[in-house]
């Protein structure tokens, strides 16, 4: 191992980039939560600061644990220490996550493990991503009621180098749209098991049911609302993060 290119902090950051703030569905690296990464094989250390000391311990735990798991994926890394700084439960979370303990064992007033919280956020992320995908389709002339009829097999993700081919059934319409929004949507919809077989409907209502075409507009507006909420909360976290960490240039 010592002769191959050594694992460095940038490798860890590349992995951690996949970890999202569950409330915002954005990378914790892009959000600037990662303060520092150190690598001393077989150990990696990741330091995190969240926008507020009051950030829900459950959310903080999820981000810290996901960062740990992402870094542990690297060859030669066997141990990951996560240090959550300036958080009201920073010590318990840092110690618990680094020792790979379970959330509900560290916080004895937790009612449950974190799977329900994760499912809730995955659900919201799926809905918000659906809005972007359906908007991209609308921009290409496919209205929401037509999108409601799409099945997984009608979409060929990234068929054309950066663009995705969509065959709209019944109306003999073929369009291409930018890959990014639809790819992001499909990835999340597949990860949560909403879409798996080629025959599955691509999009769903907020509750996860097939979209009746006559309700497609309302479903789309509710999806927009979920996205607006994420953007709004993102704005709050962003301002708090700057206020707390003094990122603004001091006069």
């Amino acid at each position: 191992m010592s002769r191959s290119a050594p694992i460095g902090p940038s490798d860890v950051i590349d992995r951690v980039e996949r970890v999202t703030d569950p409330e915002l569905d954005r990378s914790i690296v892009d959000l600037d939560y990662v303060d520092d990464v150190a690598v001393d094989p077989p150990t990696a250390t990741i330091e995190l600061t969240l926008p507020t000391a009051w950030c829900s311990p459950a959310f903080a735990w999820m981000m810290a644990a996901d960062a740990r798991d992402a870094a542990r994926d690297l060859p030669g890394i066997e141990r990951v220490r996560v240090r959550l700084r300036d958080h009201m439960h920073g010590e318990e979370i840092s110690r618990g996550v680094s020792r790979r303990r379970a959330f509900e064992d560290v916080f004895d007033d937790a009612e449950d493990d974190l799977s329900a919280v994760r499912a809730q956020f995955d659900h919201k992320a799926r809905v918000a991503r659906q809005y972007d995908a359906v908007e991209a389709l609308a921009d290409a002339g496919v209205d929401p009621s037509q999108s409601a009829r799409l099945r997984r097999r009608d979409v060929d993700v990234d068929a054309l180098d950066g663009r995705t081919a969509v065959q709209v059934p019944n109306v003999d319409l073929y369009v291409t749209i930018p890959t990014e929004p639809i790819e992001r949507y499909v990835r999340k919809a597949e990860a949560i098991g909403l879409v798996s077989a080629p025959d599955d409907r691509l999009f769903a209502t907020i509750e996860g049911e097939p979209v009746p075409p006559e309700d497609a507009e309302t479903v789309h507006r509710r999806a927009r609302l979920t996205r607006t909420n994420m953007h709004g909360q993102g704005g709050i976290c962003d301002r708090l993060h700057e206020a707390r960490n003094g990122d603004r240039t001091d006069a």
Partner: peptide, 8 residues
């Protein structure tokens, strides 16, 4: 924003 209850 609420921090507790922890999850549900």
């Amino acid at each position: 924003p609420t921090i507790r209850p922890l999850n549900r």
